[in-house]
Amino acid sequence: MNMLELSFVAAARKVRQSHRNAIWAIMLSVLQSVLFIAAFYFMFSLIGARAAAIRGDFMLYLLTGIFAYLTHIKAVQQIMGAEGATSAMMQHAPMNTLVAIISSALSILYTQTVSLLVVLLMIHTVINPITFHAWPGALLMYLLAWATGCAVGLLLMAAKPWLPDVVTILQLIYVRANMIASGKMFVANMMPGMMIDMFDWNPLFHVIDQARGFTFVNYFPHHTNWEYPLYFTLIALLIGFMGEAYTRKHVSASWGAGR
């Protein structure tokens, strides 16, 4: 119970890092999501790609891709930037790196979930009513996008003290590559086989396509599955926690003294 209480307090602190007022911190996240959706909406409209999307609500098509992408990428960045063993926060008992990781993961899940609910409410009341074919499955895919992001972020966090510059570059490459490789702008069933092979390695690509399968009644994913992201998450979390434990035993505050 003490650990759960500490994780809650640390998560609240994480939420308020972007702004002293927690409400404004959440509103900034909502505004970022709305701007992201608006940008993609106008881009799809200008290039005439709306006709190539799935038959159904076009806003839901955008939401299934954009929110999964944002949640995944923010989870990667948040977990990678969590306090390590040499952080000043570790001097405050009973704070530890596990609590730092859990609080970082919960804070990004909280802000993104509130942002998603606010955006869904706005679209449902202002634009047109929203209907999900199987909302429990769509919700599980959203959580899986968050979990895969946490797993990737944990791997990067464990490796960061050893190769900080290299890991930072890898994280930037991963974030930029997922702008395309996540498949949020494409429909997997309409992609040629050569492109499928280029995207198939990415667990987020599977998550987004499966989320659209649960969201739309007339879309059935043929090239993706939800098992691969799940197994990827479990294996990456195992390796990441092992690496973090090894790093915690060997890391020193003086490692970066020469930088």
Rank of each mutant, 00 (worst) to 15 (best):
M1S: 08
N2A: 07
N2Y: 05
M3R: 13
E5D: 08
S7T: 14
F8R: 08
F8Y: 11
A12C: 07
V15G: 02
V15I: 13
S18R: 15
A22K: 02
A25R: 09
M27E: 06
L28Q: 14
L28F: 12
S29P: 07
V30R: 01
S33W: 06
V34I: 15
L35H: 05
I37P: 00
A38L: 13
A39E: 02
F40P: 08
Y41C: 00
L46D: 15
G48I: 10
A49H: 15
A52P: 14
R55Y: 04
M59T: 05
L62Q: 02
T64C: 10
I66G: 04
A68H: 03
Y69H: 13
L70E: 04
T71F: 10
I73D: 00
A75E: 09
V76H: 04
V76P: 13
Q78M: 15
Q78W: 03
I79R: 03
A82Y: 00
E83I: 05
A85T: 05
P94W: 10
P94T: 01
N96V: 10
N96S: 00
S103A: 07
S103E: 12
S103L: 02
S104C: 00
L106V: 01
L106P: 05
L106W: 07
L109R: 03
L116H: 11
V118W: 01
V119T: 13
L121V: 01
I123V: 05
H124S: 07
T125V: 11
I127W: 09
P129G: 01
P129E: 03
I130Q: 02
A134T: 10
P136M: 14
A138W: 12
Y142V: 14
Y142H: 03
W146S: 14
T148M: 07
G149C: 01
C150G: 12
G153F: 02
L155D: 01
K160L: 00
W162V: 15
V167P: 01
I169V: 14
I173N: 07
I173L: 04
A177Q: 03
I180S: 12
I180D: 07
A181Q: 03
G183V: 11
G183C: 06
F186A: 10
F186V: 00
V187K: 08
A188V: 06
N189L: 12
M190A: 15
M191R: 12
M191H: 09
G193L: 14
G193H: 11
M194W: 15
M198T: 13
M198H: 11
F199M: 09
D200Y: 14
W201V: 04
N202Q: 06
L204K: 04
F205G: 07
H206L: 07
V207P: 12
I208D: 13
D209V: 11
A211P: 09
T215Q: 06
F216V: 00
F216P: 06
P221S: 03
W226K: 15
E227F: 06
T233N: 13
I235D: 10
L238E: 13
I239D: 04
M242V: 15
G243R: 08
E244W: 03
A245R: 10
Y246P: 05
Y246A: 15
R248L: 02
H250C: 09
S252K: 14
W255V: 09
W255N: 12
